[in-house]
Design a protein around this nucleic acid. Structure first.
Length: 224
DNA sequence: GACCAGGCACATC
DNA sequence: GATGTGCATGGT
C-alpha cells in the first residue's frame, strides 16, 4: 500500500506542482479559514477573510469581543453565516477559556490532547480539527475531506462508506510521518478533486491518476 | 435553473 | 451505527 500511496503522491506532485497551502498570513487566519470553508468554495472564504482584515478584526481578542450577530454580516459570503459565526465564537471561547486567548500557548499543547479538545468544540469536526492541527499548528496529522474520500473510493482503495478515521489511518499508517508531505498531499488531492472528481460524475475523465502505471496494472482492488 | 463547494450537529429510527 | 435534514452564499 505504501508503494501505491507514494506513487500517487509523486504522480500528483509532478502533474500539479506544489500547492503552497494553507494560503494565509497567520495561524489564526488558518483557523478562521478552516471553520469558514466548511462545505463552501474557498473563493467565498477569501472575501470574508478580507472583510475581517479590512476592519482589523482578524485577531483572537477582537473576534472574541465581537458578538455573534455583529460577526455574521462580515462572513456572509461563506454561506451558513449564522452557524459559522456561532462556530467561530465557540472556538474563541475555548481558546480564551483553556489557553488565555493565546495561540502561543495553544501551539505548545500536545497534539493528541489538542485534537480531543478541538473535537469537543461545537462546530469543529474531524476535518476542521485536523486542518487546524496540520496547517495552523504544524502537526503531522493527515486531513481527510470529501474529495479525498471520493478519489480513494473511486480507485477502490477504500469503501465508499469508510469512516474518517479509517481513511486517515490508511495514510498515516502507510506514509512516513512528515508534516510537509501531509500538507502537500492533501492539497494535491483537493486540487485533483476540484478538476476531475465532481460529485455526480463518477467517471473522472482525463484524471491524471488513471495514467498512473502502478494503478493501471492493478486488478480490481478489494476495499480496505 | 441545476449543480457544486476544502462539514457539522442534531433528530430519529 | 446508519440515515436524513438544516444551514445559505456565490460561481459555473
Amino acid at each position: 500500500m505504501i508503494l501505491y500511496l507514494n506513487s500517487i503522491y509523486n504522480k500528483l506532485y509532478s502533474h500539479f506542482g506544489p500547492q503552497y497551502w494553507w494560503p494565509a498570513e497567520t495561524s489564526f487566519e488558518v483557523i478562521v479559514g478552516a471553520i469558514l470553508t466548511q462545505n463552501t468554495n474557498w473563493l467565498n472564504v477569501e472575501k470574508a477573510i478580507k472583510n475581517l482584515k479590512d476592519k482589523k478584526l482578524l485577531t483572537p481578542a477582537k473576534l472574541h469581543r465581537l458578538t455573534k450577530d455583529k460577526l455574521a454580516p462580515f462572513i456572509k459570503s461563506t454561506g451558513y453565516y449564522n452557524i459559522k459565526a456561532k462556530r467561530l465564537k465557540e472556538f474563541l471561547n475555548f481558546l480564551f477559556k483553556s489557553y488565555h486567548g493565546s495561540l502561543l500557548r495553544l501551539s505548545s499543547a500536545d497534539t493528541q490532547v489538542l485534537r480531543r479538545q478541538l473535537l469537543c468544540v461545537n462546530g469543529i469536526g474531524p476535518e476542521t480539527a485536523d486542518s487546524i492541527l496540520l496547517y495552523a499548528l504544524n502537526r503531522p496529522v493527515f486531513v481527510i475531506d470529501a474529495y479525498t474520500k471520493r478519489i480513494l473510493s473511486r480507485h477502490r482503495f477504500i469503501k465508499e462508506n469508510s469512516s474518517y478515521e479509517e481513511t486517515q489511518n490508511l495514510f498515516m499508517k502507510n506514509l512516513k510521518n512528515d508534516i510537509k508531505l501531509y500538507n502537500e498531499y492533501h492539497a494535491l488531492l483537493v486540487k485533483l478533486g476540484k478538476e476531475f472528481c465532481l460529485k455526480n460524475k463518477p467517471k473522472c475523465n482525463a484524471c491524471p491518476l488513471e495514467n498512473l502505471k502502478i494503478l493501471k496494472s492493478l486488478p480490481e482492488r478489494q476495499a480496505q
